[in-house]
């Protein structure tokens, strides 16, 4: 069982994500904005974060991921710097090659299309959790 925090302003997609993940035995928390998400990160200390790209602004998801992965030792999120981030996106359904995780520009671990469906979601979440729990997976 893992604690998962989803940061997304669309309650429908939150619901579509919550049901299969809870069915798989995970503890699920949701935040409906970037700012609330950052507060919740400190409150629930999630094992995995699911993040939407476009919320208050078209790039607020990117800003959340940049804050979480801020390398400064004074960063309030230093404790969850290694928490895997799964970015949900509807941006590039037809253009699968447009962006990929990038340590500097887009510090997230994986992308998943919003339309991917529950099976793909569950398998990707389990994969990321397994990877982060593997000994020495992330320095």
């Amino acid at each position: 069982m893992a604690t998962i925090l989803m940061i997304d302003d669309d309650s429908d997609i939150v619901q579509a994500t919550r049901i299969p993940l809870e069915a798989n035995g995970h503890e699920f928390h949701a935040a409906s904005s970037g700012a609330e998400g950052l507060r919740q990160v400190l409150a629930v200390a999630p094992d995995l974060i699911i993040l939407d790209v476009m919320m208050e602004t078209y790039t607020s998801g990117f800003h959340v991921s940049l804050s979480l992965r801020n390398p400064s030792p004074d960063s309030p999120y230093a404790a969850c710097r290694r928490t895997p981030i799964l970015m949900l996106t509807a941006v590039h359904t037809t253009t699968p090659l447009r962006f990929a995780p990038d340590e500097d520009y887009l510090p997230v671990d994986a992308f998943l299309e919003k339309s991917a469906g529950p099976e793909a979601l569950v398998s990707m979440v389990e994969g990321l959790l397994a990877k982060s729990r593997a000994p020495g997976a992330r320095p």
Partner: peptide, 23 residues
Amino acid sequence: THELRSPLQVTQNLMAVLRGGYT
């Protein structure tokens, strides 16, 4: 693009959750 695709994708997703027997 975003405004049109988003609700369709979410609808697909919700139906997939139903179809997957999670409920």
